[in-house]
Design a binder for these strands. Sequence first.
DNA 1: CCTACTGTTCGATGCTTGTCGAATCATCAC
DNA 2: GTGATGATTCGACAAGCATCGAACAGTAGG
Lengths: 104, 104
Amino acid sequence: MPRVLPEPSADSFDLTVILSALAEPGRRALMTELYRSTDPVDCAVVVEKADLGLSNPTISHHYRVLREAGLIRTVAEGRKRIVKVRRDDMDARFPGLLTAVLGT
Amino acid sequence: MPRVLPEPSADSFDLTVILSALAEPGRRALMTELYRSTDPVDCAVVVEKADLGLSNPTISHHYRVLREAGLIRTVAEGRKRIVKVRRDDMDARFPGLLTAVLGT
DNA sequence: CCTACTGTTCGATGCTTGTCGAATCATCAC
DNA sequence: GTGATGATTCGACAAGCATCGAACAGTAGG
């Protein structure tokens, strides 16, 4: 039942796309929150914690950008979306990048 | 006679500005070239090596963005502009960032 | 002083992007 | 099925940005 939403493979990561995704403060806030836990989490919970004053369409858009950059994996489970950072893939292609941008 | 062009202090660096600057392929190409040498270099030489097909105004604009992000220091000497990467300042505020983005 | 040269500034233009409201879709509970 | 709920899609709009040609500014060399 859970389906993984479309995402790029690690070897087709594009640094321009990744940096553009991380350059946006709202998206970086989401990532920082996501980066705390290694386990997948409900994206709505992350949104709540990040506490950006943004509408649902905008949030959805930001998650999409992050996913299409390869930064996160999104799994649809029922009505919810479960997300997690693709640490290994990112570290493989751009070692130290996530740590440098999102903190320790 | 040499004058240092206006630049932000290390403690006023803004990660959003920095990542936006590095997200642009042309600017990143300039940075990658600059990052090779620790010594200041003539910016025109860098442009030549990077071999982007861009006009002078555009190049000038890109250098300005990099400088105002705090990524480079630009010194005007006569008609030339001497540039170098602000490694120490960047490493102090965002350790590992330059290495992660520009390679070893 | 005049010229050549290097780089910057100034519009203007076209593309990208962040944002939202409204409509739509998919799923769960009853 | 019906209704409620969480998320996405679809225009639409405003702001930002990369790019260029033309004009400008400062400097070096006659």
